[in-house]
Design a binder for these strands. Structure first.
Lengths: 210, 210
DNA sequence: TAAAAATCACCCTTTAGGGGGTATTTTTAA
DNA sequence: TTAAAAATACCCCCTAAAGGGTGATTTTTA
């Protein structure tokens, strides 16, 4: 499905200057049309379905319902819509929350309109545009700790533990005995300085061991 | 730290045509210099440290040690190096594995050299460049299931369960009684059709509920 | 103003997980 | 080639944390 010139854009952004600035530039320098703009989600929620937007540009810092909370609600109203987040924050948690809740792209507010228009094209073509700094944050969040004290096998077992497998399942999956899994587990606990599965999972997440 | 014109590039790629093509174009149309190229990691491992590369362009499909396995080894040899992955595969697992193991960027092989040169600039400036399709895959991997049968509280508790917290810790964290946590847990189990924490975690991961 | 969600309590049962050892085989790196 | 590290496997013991059943009140939301 390729980007249609008549694609409809809605902007939800509380800052009037930014809102109107983007709207003007998108309308005048791109093939897309801004069919509506709203200063908040609460102002938009009863009308936006009628706007039939293909793409929503959504600010995170909104009065009332914030952008992150608005995301699933918008998705419920308009299941097919692409949502591009706009924000001054770029903390890992905010970014990850937005993407987890169905955002298609993520940009910081200093993004020039031309990049935003490119992003609209990208999402309409099925891509997932992000500014490089945002992408960096996402990549870092996926990165494992390169200085893990665990061996390959131990890491593998810890990974299976973190996804909820019990000894029996792990043994089957790795074609080894349950007792061997136990031995590895003990060694993992010793190395991580813990003495329960629960703690091991917490340390694993915390130190990005898996 | 800004991109230095004299930044040193190494290419590890088994296809001679691609390898030499990229090398030629980077040397002649960018401010960077390709200081060495290798057809495999095994051919590179004893020499690459002396090349002192700032950026390595690394193919995934290599003879001998493949690119994913080579990643941590290269990082050990050259802790500061940025690695951009190049591949024909774009399966979620491959992409995520590469990023988990310390890749800075990820491109499919049809990427034009000019985009690759941009990517080199991006990583040197601390960004995390990806082609839009790769970014899309990454975003999808982060996405939660919008049709979760769980309530907000239940989701919250399931999330804490998946990171290894026990009833007591969850209760403390949410300022509620342990018995309440138990009730929620029971309801979660009913909704997910499971009857243990382990199973719940597996379903949660599987259906991207958390 | 119903319905859904969130809160709390008591009883009772069990198993998966954890701690302590010991030992052999395979792989890796020097 | 050789010593060290990693992976494999077994035995005994023990209990804390998890799970099941049932009932009830308060708060939130549509």
């Amino acid at each position: 499905m390729y980007s249609q010139p008549e694609s409809r854009i809605v902007i939800i952004e509380d800052d009037q200057t930014i809102r109107e600035g983007y709207a003007y530039l998108i309308n005048h320098t791109s093939p897309y049309q801004v069919v509506a703009t709203y200063p908040s989600f609460d102002a938009a929620k009863h009308k936006i379905a009628k706007d039939q937007p293909d793409v929503i540009i959504l600010d995170i810092q909104l009065p009332g319902t914030n952008g992150i909370d608005a995301l699933p609600l918008l998705k419920k109203l308009l299941p097919q819509v692409y949502i591009i987040m706009l924000t001054v924050y770029e903390t890992e948690k905010t970014i990850l929350d937005a993407l987890a809740n169905g955002a298609s792209g993520y940009f910081t507010k200093n993004t020039p309109t031309v990049k935003l228009i490119e992003a609209i094209k990208d999402v309409l073509n099925g891509g997932g545009p992000m500014s490089p700094d945002v992408a960096k944050t996402v990549i870092l969040s996926l990165q494992k700790n390169p200085d893990s004290p665990l061996t390959k096998r131990e890491t593998q077992i810890l990974e299976l533990i973190t996804i909820g497998k019990d000894r029996g399942q792990i043994a089957k999956e790795l074609f080894i005995e349950v007792e061997t899994v136990k031995t590895h587990t003990k060694n993992i606990y010793t190395k991580l300085n813990v003495n329960s599965k629960a703690e091991a999972i917490q340390v694993a997440k915390d130190k990005r061991l898996v």
